[in-house]
Design a protein around this nucleic acid. Structure first.
Lengths: 345, 345
DNA sequence: CTGAAAGCGCTAACAA
DNA sequence: TTGTTAGCGCTTTCAG
């Protein structure tokens, strides 16, 4: 059995309260007694029980983070940002992975709520209503999702897509395909919105190839549709999907970017390492994670005196790499006849 | 303020104990009263405080997992295995990332210990002594590390390396370079042991290129040393490093596998997707994660009546892919003179 | 500066 | 079957 505060108290010949004070409010106790207490605590290997402490103080010293899929590099980066901020503020971080299951989000939210002081809920897949219904008593900050009345940190996805489409348009692309992500993804919805808007603005055709799992296999599955669509460029929901596209296109001997251009989104580190490298819309993952924690901590500090649910929006930035999967639409003839509607050339 | 068991009790017109029983031991209460209690609980949105419950039952219903780096795909897979097993046994899982810092391991171990029933400590970097010294009162199962007296789940890394070396040897390679991982990695030590042994057995030269961070950049940094070493094949500590090697070799216009062969370890999903694909030693990550939880749960069930710290060892398996980064050493001439000691050709 | 006592939310004897 | 009581490990009044 692990030593409790009582053990330390009797070992040091003082009361429990003195031990407690010696540990958490050192100024309030006589240096001599404090030394005695610390010595005893050290000798016994005493570790305060944070759960018990939390029961009375209402603070656990823990933060929670819920993400859809830790094996997605996008979320790993978010984790790193959240972690850095949490550690900096002297909080422990509990991370939970929902495996892209909406029901797990609610469950985890509940399991976590009493054990942490605040929760960052990243890219939740649950419908607004379900999310609103969960009576969570710790503060929750949403990331990559905006819901009326809840604080959130988001990225301007629509603008990112606009940058991508304008880039393609400038290169002469007039027919652009989109490999969509999960229907339940707010970010995906924002991206589609941005795509539609800017396709219209630039006078391009936008082909929606359907919703695919946000994984490598999703891109593999979408590649043939992309080719058949007659688009000269494909934008993928994210980089992982774009890598899947590249892989399948490679197997089919379709040259990227000569025959078709491929764009990703997120700017995961892998996207710079492929040949060709991926042109991508960079999402400030690390910063967003950090911002979510900063927001969370500010809410905790203010107590329950909520201002009207602060939102923070970061911007996305198109990254065009040197040797990349994007080329002018007119640069090469499009062989094989799978482009139904070529550019001017 | 969130409703407590008292609120539910008074709302249902019963005592706290009845509420408690209605929720955790439904058989022991009158169906009618139980219904009343459940109704009240539902209406108030009552969620039991697991921390408070844990304080008295000694069980929290949580498991902990500590890994060096969640952005490493190897550990993502481990997480998935651990998570599946934990969820299957109705435990919540708390994951913590140490950022490859040994000190963070100890810290997290302490922070976690009272809030979970058991901990899986994956690939710890701390010295044996430090690890042994930590007085953790929850059960701890080590993964990818064996320490006297602690239960563990490991993989036969040495045998994996043996398979790799014999494969290379059969292809005529006689000088093999190794890009080592962290000095503090037990797995790396095991791999080096296997490499030395089998190099000796097959009469090959083994060139140790030094220790590198187990990341992409580590491989990039090691590539030039590999070329200069005169080896006809390089084995990397893991696949991520191997990908870094491939990338840098590509930039230097060195053809893989024509001029030099590259092998990885771990079998992360990315390794099958590169061109050429990576021949790699597959580590059963998911299964190991699962096994660690199974072991942990069996320890928890047995109480403190320890048998002498059970160990479980899984096996590694060389994966040779169709189009791969490994070729016979004699298949092509080695240009550029950076191989000091060519094969028979 | 220190100790005694109360109580955080919950469960587990022990009675009724 | 239900209520009463004690107490998990800790912090925090309130006295002294």
């Amino acid at each position: 059995m692990a030593p409790t505060i009582r053990d330390v108290a009797s070992a040091a010949g003082v009361s429990q309260s003195t031990v407690s004070r010696a540990l958490s409010m050192p100024e309030l106790v006589n240096p001599a007694t404090r030394a005695r207490v610390l010595e005893a605590a050290g000798r016994l290997g005493y570790q305060p029980n944070r759960a018990a402490r939390g029961l009375i103080t209402g603070r656990t010293g823990n933060l929670g983070l819920i993400v859809p899929d830790l094996s997605n590099p996008f979320f790993s980066s978010v984790v790193k940002g959240v972690q850095a901020a949490a550690r900096g503020a002297d909080y422990s971080l509990f991370i939970a992975d929902t495996d892209e299951e909406a029901s797990a989000e609610i469950e985890l939210l509940r399991a976590l709520t009493r054990q942490v002081d605040g929760i960052v809920l990243c890219s939740p897949r649950s419908p607004d209503d379900d999310l609103a219904r969960v009576g969570v008593d710790s503060s929750v900050v949403l990331m990559n999702r905006r819901i009326e009345g809840r604080p959130s940190v988001t990225v301007d996805n629509a603008d990112g897509m606009r940058q991508a489409v304008e880039h393609l348009s400038a290169l002469g692309h007039r027919r652009i395909a989109y490999v969509a992500g999960p229907r339940t993804s707010w970010s995906n919805a924002q991206r589609e919105r941005g795509l539609h808007q800017s396709a219209e603005d630039t006078g391009s055709d936008l082909v929606h190839l359907g919703h695919f799992p946000p994984r490598f296999e999703g891109g593999v599955a979408a590649a043939d549709l992309a080719l058949a669509s007659g688009a000269t460029a494909v934008i993928a929901y994210n980089d992982v999907v774009a890598l899947g596209l590249l892989s399948r296109l490679g197997s089919r001997q379709v040259s990227v970017p000569d025959e078709i251009s491929v764009l990703g989104c997120d700017d995961i580190s892998m996207s710079a390492m492929t040949h060709p490298a991926l042109t991508t819309v960079s999402i400030p993952k690390w910063e967003a994670g950090r911002a979510a924690v900063v927001l969370l901590l500010s809410l905790l500090a203010e107590g329950t005196a909520d201002s009207p649910a602060p939102d923070r929006e970061l911007s996305a930035q198109l990254i065009v790499r040197a040797t990349t999967g994007v080329a002018p639409a007119t640069s090469r003839p499009v062989p094989g006849g799978h482009s139904m509607k070529g550019p001017t050339g």
